[in-house]
Amino acid sequence: MIAQVLEAQGLLTAFAFIGLVMGLSAAVSRYLTFGRIHGSAIAVLAGLALAWAGGSMTGGTHGLADIPMLSGIGLMGGAMLRDFAIVATAFEVDVAKARAAGLYGALALALGLVLPFTVGVLVALAYGYTDAVSLTTIGAGAITYIVGPVTGAALGANSEVMAISIAIGVLKAILVMAGTPFLARVMGLDNSRSAMVFGGLMATTSGVSGGLAATDRRLVPYGALTATFSTGLGCLFGPSLLYLAVRALIGG
């Protein structure tokens, strides 16, 4: 009976459940780390841990959302509401500040495509992949888990390479989400310009928005703005320019 109600009112269950997670995380932050680790950072880590638990229990690929009672979390954390909330944060963007990042932002966008792509291609080479399509698809996955499969589909990569490409992108997003709050000080993430550079370089919108949210909420719109453009550029250049570059270097 209870399970039935919770499942039928999925989104409300998700609001209540995530509220509970946020509350517990705030308490852990205050009493166990004495405020040193931000409550949001703990909440994001808790979310990832719960996703692991959910995935292990059900054998599914959607973390907690594969548990029928908690399926509403899939809607709450899905693309529609995520994009809606990200766009809402743009309301706080200071136009003068966004403009000041100009050249740096553009440089970060370009580096955000080339650097992770190169790392991905080199690692794939080291693990014995030699054809340009597989190398490009795996390299594109190191940009984001959206760019990877889009590139792979456009180039006709096989499903094993696609899965690897997506997995690299997902792991990258997870690492950025979890690592950013701890390395924020080293990276100088305390102003709008570095947040825009960070967004452009990391490219993964979910990783950037999660990581910045856990660091300083005011930085989110600046990072998310460049990250979404980075992802878009990746989808554009992955199957075209980057593929042609790899083919020219590898020859095949």
């Binding site: 979310g47 973390g63 954390g77 690692v123 899965a163 997902v170 909420r217």
Partner: peptide
């Protein structure tokens, strides 16, 4: 926004990413 990000984190394929092997982790 932050709660939505937490929900998003809770629906990632963490098991798959961890299981996919060393090449994924290295890259």
């Amino acid at each position: 926004y932050i709660p939505i990000v937490v929900a998003m984190a809770a629906t990632q394929n963490v098991v798959g990413a961890v299981k996919a092997g060393p090449m994924v982790a290295v890259a």
